[in-house]
Design a protein around this nucleic acid. Sequence first.
DNA 1: AAATCAGGGTTGTATGATAACACGACAAGA
DNA 2: TCTTGTCGTGTTATCATACAACCCTGATTT
Lengths: 261, 261
Amino acid sequence: MTLKLDKVNRGPHLSTLVASSISREIAQGRLKPGDQLPTEQALATTFGVSRNVVREAIARLRSEGRIWSQQGRGAFVADAANATVLTIDYEALQRADSFRNLFELRGMLEVQIAALAATRRSDADIEAMEQALDGMRTAPYGSVAWLKNDLGFHRAVAEATQNPYMGQFLVFVSERVRESILAAGNQQKSDDMARTTLGEHERILAAIKAGDAKGASAAMTRHLAGAASRVGLPGGEASAKPASPARHSRLRKAVRGQAAG
Amino acid sequence: MTLKLDKVNRGPHLSTLVASSISREIAQGRLKPGDQLPTEQALATTFGVSRNVVREAIARLRSEGRIWSQQGRGAFVADAANATVLTIDYEALQRADSFRNLFELRGMLEVQIAALAATRRSDADIEAMEQALDGMRTAPYGSVAWLKNDLGFHRAVAEATQNPYMGQFLVFVSERVRESILAAGNQQKSDDMARTTLGEHERILAAIKAGDAKGASAAMTRHLAGAASRVGLPGGEASAKPASPARHSRLRKAVRGQAAG
DNA sequence: AAATCAGGGTTGTATGATAACACGACAAGA
DNA sequence: TCTTGTCGTGTTATCATACAACCCTGATTT
């Protein structure tokens, strides 16, 4: 019984609504960097909520680097470049083009990471990869345990680069991709797929073990092409067409205005 | 006499301390996913603050996806995978190794992005790049305007991939790198450097314009090697000058404003 | 046995009050 | 005139309390 409950309860919290509202004002340019926000009291009355709610919203925006505040002065809009967090809008991932774009980004990271891992891996890294592969062999394809070990393998590869940011970024992107796949929920499973996928991973591991950077990235490329087709994306990688026509070129703001909603 | 007064220890907000404390408990495994947090009242008394402060901290953690809460039940630690934001600790960037790692990640992104841009760029993208280059030509090396156009060039390249996430990620990483460089603040400037840097950019643009993916990534690789040596990283042909310890002079103040929260 | 209801516990929100701080105005002293 | 100290106002930061909404459990009723 696959009860498919919708994941994000779009926060019933008032503070979430207030934060989104202010965020939108910033994203759409009605509040420019350096501008002073209305006082908490004013915001509270205009939104019709208590000052406490406004404070929670501001605390949130502050933690995201969107605004900064100082006791006795007020709250101000921070420079857009100062955003200390990178967020990916969950809603956007439901759109096919966004998903494809994110998948492409993941692929770019993975391929490079595989090559780097091949030149820097330690024995412990190799062992971690083999352990993850073992976990995949004993778990049914597509099960939670399988997915966990799948991600674990890729994380182990990323950690083999000895660069913590690689793993951090890759896991972040991969998780968004995975969520999106689960949300779509239309992948069919078969033992054949399990064997194929496992084989792709094994080839990656073999190349990394051998210290073959070129081979590792090639194997990873093949793996990603396979993964793409398994989730219903047009498989090719190098000659992939632009995910979205040249519309984006003039819309830099669209990229920056992250969670406008 | 430059008297160096350390900024008064204007401690971060209490809610920040509480949030960090809880965050640390989660990161270090003392609070595992699924665990229920103490009640707000309990947290308030143990931390010696009001419940309001605890609520602001929780609002922040909730927005980061680290915990979730439900009215009438309590607050619970979320799965690590559910983190909706990617953050880079500013303090960590002051360490030379972290900086080097982030620079490496940026390089990986840039090189791939350049190749992709060469195959997908539109006329508008090319124009944006040329405009940024013009801006660099007329601004003094290292000035704010120069840096702005420098970043603008790289962003234009990223947007030429027609994949918005490329720009989003690259800009995020680049901004962290830039902040870190400014914090170190001991790069010497010269007209020679300006010419060199400009030349590197021009070669990148030429390759992208020609649709030469290989040439574009090669040019970008050379540019990054040059940039690395210019900021004192052992990356290209330059002597390995040890990364200078961060002297928090001016930036600290600026960052303090943003991070206070 | 099942449905209903009461009670306590927890989070969500509102309200008022106080402390800490920034900033300008203004007067006192040189 | 210039400096300095003081004060008043406005804002954020924090505290304290109260109530509403909600979940869970267990007893009560049907």
